[in-house]
């Protein structure tokens, strides 16, 4: 056990408190105004992308990170390469 972890051993409750505050703020909808905002954003963003390019359901990766001050929604859409003119 390192020296740091020795001194940190008693500090688990503040970690628990902070994790709960962030989580519950999102679940109660305090952050972002509505509890399922991210789910809605995700669906609508994907719908807009699909309006313009054919996207395979499998080629979409959605990552989320909720923090106290800022949350990030990362949507990675793999867009198929255009078919070269000569290959048609």
């Amino acid at each position: 056990m390192s020296l740091m972890s020795f001194f940190n051993r008693r500090t688990s409750a503040p970690v628990a408190r902070e994790r709960l505050q962030i989580l519950l703020a999102h679940e109660r909808g305090i952050v972002g105004g509505q509890p399922d905002l991210v789910a809605k954003l995700r669906e609508e963003i994907l719908a807009v992308v699909r309006r313009h390019v054919m996207v395979e359901h499998d080629n979409v990766q959605v990552k989320m990170n909720r923090d106290a001050d800022i949350s990030t929604l990362e949507i990675e859409v793999e867009i198929p390469a255009p078919v070269p003119v000569g290959a048609r």
């Binding site: 994790r19 962030i22 989580l23 991210v38 995700r42 959605v62 990552k63 989320m64 990170n65 909720r66 923090d67």
Partner: peptide, 12 residues
């Protein structure tokens, strides 16, 4: 998710 520390990363 909370017990495993992944609560901030749940999407689906």
């Amino acid at each position: 998710d909370l017990v495993m520390g992944a609560e901030r990363r749940v999407v689906f």
